[in-house]
């Protein structure tokens, strides 16, 4: 369904002396149809950037993205607009994803109106249908986002996203701005809908427990690179990369030295903070190695 190859995004700043921030630095993965891939990593590691790149909300520096056989990066603006409805994104802050001046019902109806082909009554029916699917009450339609709670707003966002029957959804920390009590409800709703509607999901989060709950496979990201990827089970029971281990049981290993000038490092991205760092780690970047079925790790330590 989704195939990403060597995706890179460098942000540059400065006019005379360009400085680059490698937000995403050579990321490759695949997502099968109907599968949920969880993407974990600390904040600032490039998770969200990967999500936005997949939907071409920002343009990558280099790399290849294919979506259902379509080479996304080759598409012209017009062609892209035709493909876009099939891929959607759920953002972290539900209230920010809704226009504050628009009634919630209008926000849900917007995608339907833009796609055309439905008359007013059909749109209205479809909106009520969607409202019900995500577990809202019909009277919520006439409210504004500021009049609803975070959880309710996230349901609205879901309804809006589902309006166009997408195949692929990027969920970027959809629950991290919500109350703990509401988080589980929204997560279960996403999971149920995914099953019911046969969606393909990229689930981004910094919370490993949440990702475990949601995902079939998990990719662990550190400083713009994927360091380990595999089935959820393998990642939790048989984590190989030292960084994955610190994520799973933070207490077990000495604290990571967070450095800001890792950009100059030529070897492994995790080298400055790694407790097992050897000489080679600082010199050459480790390749991804398959150590089990579909379980890939980029680390010298495992071999």
């Amino acid at each position: 369904m989704i195939e990403v190859k060597d995706l890179r995004k460098y942000f540059s700043s400065g006019i005379l002396k360009k400085q680059y921030i490698k937000a995403v630095d050579g990321v490759s993965f695949q997502i099968e149809r109907g599968e949920t891939l969880g993407l974990v990593g600390e904040s600032g590691c490039g998770k969200t950037t990967v999500g936005k790149l997949l939907l071409r909300l920002i343009e990558p520096t280099s790399g290849k993205i294919s979506f259902d056989g379509i080479d996304l990066l080759q598409l012209k603006k017009k062609e892209l607009r035709k493909v876009r409805p099939r891929m959607q994104m759920i953002f972290q802050d539900p209230e920010a994803s809704l226009n504050p001046g628009m009634k919630v019902g209008d926000s849900i109806a917007e995608p339907l109106k833009l796609q055309g082909g439905l008359n007013k009554r059909e749109i209205k029916n479809k909106v009520s249908e969607l409202i019900e699917t995500v577990g809202l009450n019909p009277e919520h339609v006439n409210r504004y986002p500021y009049q609803l709670s975070g959880g309710q707003n996230q349901r609205v966002v879901l309804a809006r996203v589902l309006a166009l029957n997408p195949d692929f959804i990027v969920a970027d920390e959809p629950t991290s701005s919500l109350d703990v009590s509401v988080q589980a409800q929204i997560l279960n709703l996403i999971r149920d809908l995914k099953r019911e509607l046969h969606l393909t999901l990229l689930f981004i989060s910094h919370d490993l427990e949440v990702v475990r709950h949601m995902s079939d496979r998990i990719a662990v990201m550190y400083h713009g690179k994927i360091v380990e990827i595999g089935n959820a089970k393998d990642i939790f029971n048989d984590a190989r990369h030292p960084y994955t281990n610190t994520l799973i049981s933070p207490a077990s290993i000495v604290d990571i030295k967070t450095t800001s000038d890792y950009h100059g490092v030529s070897g492994c991205v995790f080298y400055p903070g790694c407790p097992f760092a050897a000489e080679i780690c600082s010199k050459k970047e480790p390749e991804m190695v398959e150590i089990g079925s579909g379980h890939w790790v980029a680390c010298y330590y495992i071999s």
Partner: peptide, 17 residues
């Protein structure tokens, strides 16, 4: 760069809209 603008772009909204 607000999310709701990006969300609108994702449902196929043209620039003028």
């Amino acid at each position: 760069t607000r999310n709701y603008v990006e969300a609108a772009r994702m449902v196929g909204a043209p620039d003028t809209y």
